[in-house]
Design a protein around this nucleic acid. Sequence first.
DNA 1: TATATATTCAACCATATGGTTGACCTTTAA
DNA 2: TTAAAGGTCAACCATATGGTTGAATATATA
Lengths: 108, 108
Amino acid sequence: MTHPLDTIFAALSDPTRRAILAMLLEDDMAVTDVAEPFQTSLAAISKHLHVLAQAGLITQERRGRVKWCKLDPDALREASVWMQGFGQMEALDLDGFERFLAAELGDG
Amino acid sequence: MTHPLDTIFAALSDPTRRAILAMLLEDDMAVTDVAEPFQTSLAAISKHLHVLAQAGLITQERRGRVKWCKLDPDALREASVWMQGFGQMEALDLDGFERFLAAELGDG
DNA sequence: TATATATTCAACCATATGGTTGACCTTTAA
DNA sequence: TTAAAGGTCAACCATATGGTTGAATATATA
């Protein structure tokens, strides 16, 4: 009976989880590697990843004994859409992203 | 020691509080009027409003015995900005950007 | 086969959250 | 001056959250 946005925003409210999302922005990662830069236990990170997966912010796929974590922007978009409903801020600026990216790649 | 985004996202994670924000989008309201459509007690709504104010999502101004609640989109914008780049805009992680963009455009 | 690696599970702890009720303070109105 | 209206505060309760540790599971390697 809880709205998806409840879970999504709750997941985003923890700094460790936001840091994990930022890490996953760079590349898919195994659970152990996600945990490496943090002071907390592996079990705690495993829980954080579960929260992120429940919120739909990441997906996890097991290959062998390694569980790979991958960013899934769908949930983030859902939250962004809700925020845009307030009409008081810029929309997720995909065109801007694209232009930015093209420019960077062009003279990089 | 807590990041503003912790407080903002936590505030947004509750459906009652999101409903309150939506109500305030239409007009400024007194605490009692905010509470009216909800089943919960006035005290509970008062707490919710305090959480929203702490997060910077609303401002409150007392006039006489009435406390007026007003939407303040700054905090929402802050959260929105984070979402647009996962806080990694400055990192110029082009591979990450590209994947993020591909995912966004792919099923958006 | 034995051992190391990758990850989760279970039990526990401290603190936070959202709710309640009743008392309380302040301002307005009778 | 008395009463009502607008809000908050304090104490309490149940549940959720984030952390720990140690055991358990499954897969890979020697």
